[in-house]
């Protein structure tokens, strides 16, 4: 069985790769393209650590075949910052100490960016439900939620919260 030749776009750049039909997009990202920012925490769509944005919608790359990327647009954690300028969600994760071990962080940031792409004014409850598919065992979610809401405020052009120092 020959490999599939897939032509796609990852983080704004045209990418071609070869993969077998059963390889997941996460396997392709990590093992073929060496984009290891997307993590495998469960392999069954329950933890969200492998979240990527596919044609504008956040999905688990572990539940997507690499061949399905043909002709699509994929954004991974490596494509969230613009050059050396962090996305507001990334910046606010740092300011609010919204990560401890940092393993779930790429998935959370990708999912949070997808939320703010759709809704710049989410409530705390909407944010919590949107991110319910991103497990974090370290933070208890408190600082994560604060970071996302604060990033939303900044993206709305408001001053944002200052973290007391």
């Amino acid at each position: 069985m020959s490999k599939h030749h897939v032509t796609t776009n990852i983080n704004g750049e045209p990418v071609e790769f070869l993969c077998e039909a059963q390889q997941t997009m996460l396997d392709v990202l990590r093992d073929e393209l060496h984009l290891t920012g997307s993590k495998e925490g469960c392999g069954s769509g329950d933890c969200g650590a492998c979240s990527v944005i596919l044609d504008g919608k956040v999905v688990c790359s572990c539940l997507m075949l690499g061949v399905e990327a043909e002709g699509r647009k994929v954004i991974t954690i490596e494509g969230i910052a613009q050059g050396d300028k962090l996305h507001p969600v990334q910046q606010k994760f740092l300011e609010h100490a919204a990560l401890q071990c940092g393993f779930c962080t790429p998935g959370l940031i990708v999912a949070a960016k997808a939320l703010l792409d759709e809704n710049l004014n989410p409530t705390e409850e909407e944010t919590r439900y949107w991110l319910a598919g991103n497990l974090c065992r370290c933070t208890g979610y408190d600082k994560v939620i604060r970071a996302v809401l604060d990033a939303a405020a900044v993206m709305r052009g408001e001053p944002g919260a200052s973290v007391s120092t």
Binding site: T36, K39, F93, L94, G102
Partner: peptide, 19 residues
């Protein structure tokens, strides 16, 4: 409450974990 020194690597996917 400064920003942690390893923070940027961890919010950009650069940090290398076990796998």
């Amino acid at each position: 409450r400064p920003i942690r020194p390893d923070g940027v690597d961890k919010v950009t996917g650069r940090a290398n974990f076990g796998a």
